[in-house]
Design a protein around this nucleic acid. Structure first.
Length: 141
DNA sequence: GCCAACGTTGGC
DNA sequence: GCCAACGTTGGC
């Protein structure tokens, strides 16, 4: 993995758009973000960055990793120019999905935005946190 | 189903 | 510009 690669995490309710839907689509634009903080995170994504895909509400676990294939551009589902999307492509399903519970009990994941800011839907993940999540998931990239 | 944590809206 | 009221998200 390139050292400049940043990690992110996006949340989605699987009843609306699950990891399996995403894999079947092959590639998608990440639309519907209507929150400035989440939007700013989308805009900060660079092509090649890696994005954890989290199932909220049902499942509450990190299912897989996606790759940013196109940087932020205006949200085609909105007339409002403030909102943007990025293109994401599935990279790999996690061998072992990492549950919110596992994240919460890990002493080095106490500060992760997923726990601290439960309502944010697009958030940065530090390199250290990413390494731990990958370890917990028994997945290498 | 409840509620905490936020974000947004609108009256002043 | 403040703040109360309201709406939404998401964990429990």
């Amino acid at each position: 993995m390139a050292n400049k690669t940043s990690f992110w995490l996006v949340k989605q309710e699987p009843s609306q758009y699950s990891w399996d839907n995403f894999v079947m689509d092959g590639e998608t634009y990440w639309d519907g973000v209507r929150n400035y903080q989440a939007r700013n995170n989308l805009q900060a994504m660079k092509k090649g960055d890696l994005v954890f895909f989290y199932h909220s509400v049902t499942g509450k676990d990190i299912k897989g990793i996606a790759k940013v294939t196109r940087e932020a551009y205006p949200d085609p589902t909105s007339d409002d120019p403030r909102w943007v999307v990025v293109d994401l492509k599935p990279l790999k399903a996690l061998t072992h999905p990492v549950t919110l519970e596992e994240v919460k009990i890990h002493k080095d994941l106490q500060e992760i935005a997923l726990v601290r800011q439960s309502r944010l839907s697009v958030m940065p993940v530090t390199k250290k946190e990413s390494r731990i999540i990958l370890q917990l998931s028994k997945t290498s990239i």
